[in-house]
Design a protein around this nucleic acid. Structure first.
Lengths: 239, 239
DNA sequence: AGATGTGAACCCGTTCACAGCG
DNA sequence: CGCTGTGAACGGGTTCACATCT
């Protein structure tokens, strides 16, 4: 985030920034920013601030963005294709070395100007290109298997878009992006806002309560023994 | 995550689970799971475990998934289209009420079986459908403006895919999914692994160091004053 | 004077460990 | 006896506040 804000400043030829200004642009407070930067070394000047160009370089180097990172994307559905087309990757040292899909009908097709290869070639692609970062955009059912093949071929960092918990050996990093969980988190907070409004006697806006899908197995929600609350307004939870 | 694991168990008609088992499936430890569930109430049975069906219902209700949540997606590029096609939304009470784009050439087109509407209609769409959740998949430049219009129209939760810090009034929730930052985080860890291997005398695999893009303004990295490290191996930082 | 760099305080989520209940 | 529920301990990231340097 800092890097992004700094790049913007750099493009406007701003020579220096204070922790206060930069923190504002990055959406954090200035104490945190100063502490973060202190891990990189003493790159600021007291009474002045930080040199923009210099910081851009230092942060880029620290993040490893001065290197070239070949990545493979496995699973060329809508999301995989969107990622392949996403410009934000190429700009920061990430290069899509290959697109891989299990569907023979996909192989050979061009997506974002890159030919789709069959998953049989996964291992050789990873080896040949020295790929250490893999992106999984397959359906949930295929994710673990793809993950294992990537890891076996030498990939040690995985970005997982499938709604699955991947299990990987020690030393392999996994980051997960779960679109549907993001929405669920928002819905949770949204529901709480509505509940708060009701309890304050305000007429709520937004989603109407659906007939409480009492199905899900016929019996719906038979409390086995039970003592918890069971109204429409949820129990109190930490934010 | 718990809900997903429980749904899978439910489909296999498993009647009960222990905190240990479920925690394994969800990728957390059992103490955390028990503490989490304790916020919902005492829904377990000592010596036995948790009733799967009952928990599914309770968690769904707590998350607000027994309601119908209309969402709008603004910015129908590759990513927006991918999201519109994504099945994971509809399954959990989320309904794409409208797709919105600023490009007149897009309006009227069908994406995922839904007609694309022009951004001029944003306010009326939000009002008519009682939308409280908006998804922003526009380019960075348009995001803040779209955000403001959504909020003004009554949206109070936003899922932001654009690489921008959105500023919103008190009471509006924003969650951010930043694809390029996810990759940068992986690259950072990847680089550290490589650095560790070098310092242990092991020949590293993966990305080759590119000629240290010394450009970026001619001077590249002139330390203004300086005392920090400046080798190729980054300084020590917290993980 | 002005802004950095950082030890100390603070906060909060996670984990431990065990009492308590079925 | 087995497993839940939870107070207490732990850990680490964030914030405060100020000494320090330009």
């Amino acid at each position: 985030m800092y890097l992004r804000a700094l790049t913007a400043l750099s493009e406007r030829s701003v020579p220096t920034v204070s922790s206060e200004e930069l923190a504002g642009a990055a959406g954090v407070n200035s104490a945190k920013l100063r502490k973060d930067f202190s891990y990189l070394g003493s790159y600021g000047t007291r009474g002045v601030g930080y040199d923009v160009e210099y910081l851009v370089y230092q942060i880029s180097r620290e993040l490893g963005l001065t290197q070239d990172w070949p990545v493979v994307i496995v699973g060329i559905g809508n999301l995989g294709a969107a990622l392949a087309n996403y410009g934000g990757f190429a700009s920061r040292g990430f290069r899509v070395a290959a697109l891989i899909d299990a569907d023979p009908k996909m192989t050979g097709k061009q997506v974002a100007g890159i030919g789709v290869r069959h998953v049989d070639e996964l291992e050789s692609i990873v080896h040949t290109n020295g790929v250490s970062i893999g992106v999984i955009t397959t359906p949930a059912g295929a994710a673990q298997q793809v993950c294992e093949r990537l890891v076996a071929a030498g990939v040690t960092s995985i970005l997982n878009f499938s709604p699955t918990v991947l299990s990987v050996p020690e030393g392999v990093d996994v980051r997960k992006v779960d679109l549907s969980i993001e929405l669920q988190i928002l819905a949770f907070h949204e529901q709480r806002k509505a509940a708060d409004e009701i309890s304050r006697g305000v007429r709520p806006r937004g989603a109407r309560t659906a007939a409480p899908a009492e199905g899900a197995g016929g019996a719906g929600a038979d409390r086995p023994k039970g003592q918890g609350p069971d109204g429409d307004i949820p129990a109190v939870m930490p934010a």
